[in-house]
């Protein structure tokens, strides 16, 4: 018996990595190719955005960014992002809660409906609101009679942004909450906790990182949304311009340096989002891990 054991050990090569990985040149070639691709298509454009932004110097950059029109675009972008993040967080939580913790007829239909903004082109999304609230639209005449402006005004931009960013939070939460099941909620219920107590003390702490992750993605999309907002905005400078629309206007006026300067603001926001996302992502991974119930844990402690 011991001899056969020795035999099998001898058969194994000394360096286990040799049998587990590709030859050195293949590894180098693949890694270089990937890096080249990333550099060409991601890093280079990013560098270009910032270099073009500072083409005419820092003072010019500041003057573009501090321009009242640019400031109002920043403000509008932040406002519409704020509205869509808050509302979509509430909606996302409610829908994920309903879908994962309860059985009801029409559940699959609801899941499909949540995905519509992902599958519909943003331009179509914008047009939907024009058709609903525009002067020729269904509610247009009534709104006009009551002096309420939705299309070519801030409410339209907010509505379009909400529509486009609708699925982010719930899409993030549904698989997570499905994975976690309802055991902890049931335990809390039997212990005498009410619905809100269960939500605040049990459910929310369990999904907090997943929720934050969804919120970050939702926010990133809300700030960068172009298509749907472009349709409903009307491009009134200083009034209904968001940052992406402002970039387009400057670009169309051949004011490249200014366009890139504003674009760099958006890029900066994207980088911040990315960093936040990766920080939260690590915590989120921990949250996804369900407590091991196997015998393994018995031995390690």
């Amino acid at each position: 018996m011991p001899e056969t054991l020795k035999m099998t050990f001898k058969d194994k090569p000394n360096d286990p990595t040799k049998t587990l990985t590709e030859p050195r040149w293949v590894r180098w070639a693949l890694v270089s190719l990937a890096l080249l691709f990333v550099g060409l298509f991601l890093v280079l454009p990013l560098v270009e955005v910032f270099s073009a932004a500072f083409d005419k110097g820092f003072t010019y950059y500041l003057s573009v960014v501090r321009d009242p029109v640019a400031l109002s675009a920043i403000q509008l972008t932040l406002i519409s992002a704020l509205f869509s993040v808050v509302l979509n967080t509430i909606f996302g939580l409610a829908s994920a809660w309903a879908i994962t913790k309860f059985q009801f007829p029409g559940k699959n239909l609801l899941i499909t409906l949540i995905d519509i903004p992902f599958s519909v082109s943003p331009v179509v999304a914008g047009l939907i609101y024009v058709l609903l609230f525009g002067l020729q639209g269904i509610w247009g005449p009534w709104l006009a009679a009551h002096n309420i402006h939705v299309i070519f005004a801030v409410p339209g931009i907010i509505l379009a942004t909400i529509f486009v960013t609708f699925p982010f939070v719930s899409r993030e939460l549904i698989p997570l909450m499905q994975e976690q099941g309802s055991d902890e909620e049931e335990a809390a219920l039997v212990l005498g906790a009410g619905g809100w107590q269960i939500f605040w003390k049990v459910t929310l702490p369990n999904i907090q990182w997943g929720l934050l992750y969804g919120v970050i993605l939702c926010n990133a999309r809300a700030m960068g949304e172009f298509g749907a907002v472009s349709v409903v905005s009307g491009h009134i400078r200083g009034l209904t311009d968001t940052l992406p629309l402002h970039v387009e206007i400057l670009y169309n006026e051949y004011n490249f340096t200014a366009a890139f300067a504003v674009a760099s603001l958006l890029t900066f926001l994207a980088i911040v989002t990315l960093v936040a996302k990766s920080l939260v992502g690590a915590k989120y991974e921990q949250e996804k891990q369900v407590l091991p119930t196997s015998l393994e844990s018995e031995r390690t402690v």
Partner: peptide, 28 residues
């Protein structure tokens, strides 16, 4: 279930994983 005053122990424990042992027992 909230009002029945029964204690229930689940097969997979269903402990509140973000709470300490103390807080788990204190929950009810």
């Amino acid at each position: 279930a909230k009002e029945r005053n029964v204690g229930f122990v689940f097969q997979h424990y269903a402990l509140f994983k973000h709470m300490t042992v103390f807080e788990n027992i204190a929950f009810g």
